[in-house]
Simulated assay, not measured.
Amino acid sequence: MHNLYSRFNNLTALLSSCMMALLAAIALSSLVLTADPKGEVHITSVKVIPRKHASKKQDLAFVNFNITADLTPLFHWNTKQLFLTLEAEYTNTQGVKNEVVIWDRIVRRKEDAVVSVLGKNKYMFREVSASFKNVPPAHYALKYNVMPYVGALTYGEAGRTREPVAFPPRKSHV
C-alpha cells in the first residue's frame, strides 16, 4: 500500500513538526521568564584631553568606573551567554542624543555572573563635534543583552549612575 519512501516522508514530517512545536514552546517560555538584576555604577573620575587626529582636533574622554552587579537571575536553562555594556548617555551641544559604549564584557557562565569591575573605558570616547566643552553631564548605564539558545534576544538595564557626571574642562595636550 505505502512504499518505504512514503512512510519515511510521513515520519520525518511528524518529527519535524514536533521539533518546531518544542522550539516554539521554548522560545515563548524564555519571554515569560523575566528577571530583574541589580547593579551599581559609580564613576570615579573623568578626564578630557585634546588630541589631534588626521589634521582635526578632537577631545577624548577617559572614564574610570566601578561596577558591581549580580546578574545570576538572568541565567536559566535557555541562557547561552550575556553581553554587558557600559554606556555613556548624553546630549551634545547640537541637541543630538548620544549613547556611546565605553566598556563591554561577555559572561558565559552563571558562576561568572557576579560582576565586580574597577576599570577604565575600553573603547575610545570622543565627541563628534570635536569638543566636550559646554556638553551637559552624562549618565552612565550598565546594560545587558541575554542571548538564549532558542528564542528572541532580550535587553535590559542592570544599573545606572544616580546623578549625571559632568565633563571637566580639558587638560593641556600631553
Rank of each mutant, 00 (worst) to 15 (best):
V135Q: 04
R105T: 00
V165E: 01
L153N: 09
P137H: 00
V101T: 13
A27R: 10
E87C: 10
T44L: 14
W103G: 01
V174F: 15
E87G: 02
P137C: 00
S29N: 13
T72N: 06
G39N: 09
I26D: 05
V128I: 07
A21G: 12
L84M: 13
A152Y: 14
Y5D: 04
P137R: 00
G95P: 09
V115P: 04
L33W: 13
I43P: 09
L22Q: 12
V150Q: 13
A69D: 05
R108P: 02
N9Y: 14
R109K: 05
T93F: 14
L118H: 14
L60C: 10
E40R: 08
K52S: 06
A152D: 10
E127F: 11
A54I: 06
R170S: 08
F8Q: 08
E157M: 15
L28P: 02
G159N: 01
G156A: 06
F125M: 08
P164Y: 00
G151D: 09
V48L: 10
F75G: 05
A158E: 03
G159R: 00
L153P: 02
L14I: 03
H76V: 02
P164S: 03
W103E: 06
L28I: 10
K171P: 02
A152V: 07
M20D: 11
F62Q: 07
F125P: 05
G39R: 05
R108Y: 11
S30L: 11
H53A: 05
K80D: 14
L118K: 13
T91M: 06
N3A: 03
I49T: 07
P37V: 07
M19C: 09
L153R: 11
A158G: 07
D36L: 11
I49Q: 12
R160F: 11
T68S: 10
E40S: 08
K97A: 08
E163N: 01
I106W: 15
H2G: 03
M124E: 14
Q94C: 04
I106T: 12
A54P: 01
H42I: 06
K122D: 06
M1K: 05
L4P: 01
E157V: 11
V41A: 12
I26L: 15
P164R: 01
H173Q: 07
M20G: 04
S29A: 08
N134E: 15
Q94W: 15
N92V: 02
D70A: 04
E127W: 05
T34Y: 15
L14Q: 06
I49F: 13
D112R: 04
E111R: 04
K122C: 02
T85V: 15
V48Q: 02
R105F: 06
